[in-house]
Write a protein that binds this DNA or RNA. Structure first.
Lengths: 136, 136
DNA sequence: ACCAGCGTCCTATCGAGCTAGGACGGTGGG
DNA sequence: CCCACCGTCCTAGCTCGATAGGACGCTGGT
């Protein structure tokens, strides 16, 4: 599991981390029982304070995505896929609605917005391919 | 010009206000030479501190959208439409890209995302109609 | 000329969230 | 049994943005 933090994003780093775990579970990239990387490892890899990562993990535990065992690590909970798929649906549709409202209020046509979406999706696909190239 | 603040949004109120002015200019709802409502009026209508509105107006002046005349008011600048259309294109595509990246990383299909966009657009259209109904 | 309304500025305070550095006890492989 | 690694907790300090309340000087309609 690789994490990324966008410092320019309006959402705080701890939420970005929590979302990445949630979405990885929802997408099946993290499976039930799997261990998350340690607080200190993640903190070092994304250049963030361990407390910030800990806060994200704690939030995930509160909502039932994860179960922490002192001294051992943090593990994906049994109910995680259900919880995370529900959260994904909610979070994504909320954020899309916000951005679409804004774009429409700015005078853009729905078709123009859809074009931007497809363009962003294409760019994402290209980046994805480039990443795998580099990994090989 | 009516303003709205979403306290749940991750972007601070002052930026929300600035964006609303920028997008209104880009969409032609605010014309060159038109006066913006006063700092104190806006502050009262959206339940925010006058300093917060002032900060938004100052940012708009810095970028050339608006020209402030002490004692008189804040007016849409001649170059505003150009500036705002450029900013709109940049801001909207940035935010769409962010949300689309997130949704794709969460395992959603592009077609599902487009569906959510269209659904949000439809809801917006319906709200718009309801607002005009109520205004009449 | 008056003065209500305007933009602007100032100091002070508050809250959210991140950072820093250290300490604690539980866990599990060697 | 050891000890490196783990989650957790704590105190302290910082930045950013909003809030509060007040003061200043400029502008424009009457």
């Amino acid at each position: 599991m690789r994490f990324e933090i966008d410092p320019a994003a309006p959402t705080p780093p701890s939420e970005q981390l929590a979302d990445q775990v949630r979405f990885a579970v929802a997408a099946g990239r993290l499976e039930v029982g799997e261990r998350l990387p340690s607080v200190r490892d993640v903190a070092a890899s994304v250049r963030v304070n361990p407390n910030t990562v800990s806060r994200a993990w704690r939030e995930l535990e509160r909502e039932g995505t994860v179960r922490a065992r002192r001294g051992a690590g943090v593990f994906v909970a049994d109910e995680a896929p259900l919880v995370c798929r529900a959260l994904r649906a909610q979070l994504v549709s909320e954020r899309i609605a916000r951005v679409v409202r804004e774009a429409l209020g700015a005078g853009l046509e729905p078709t123009a917005i859809v074009d931007l979406v497809l363009e962003a999706a294409e760019r994402w696909r290209a980046e994805r391919a480039a990443d795998e190239e580099e990994a090989a």
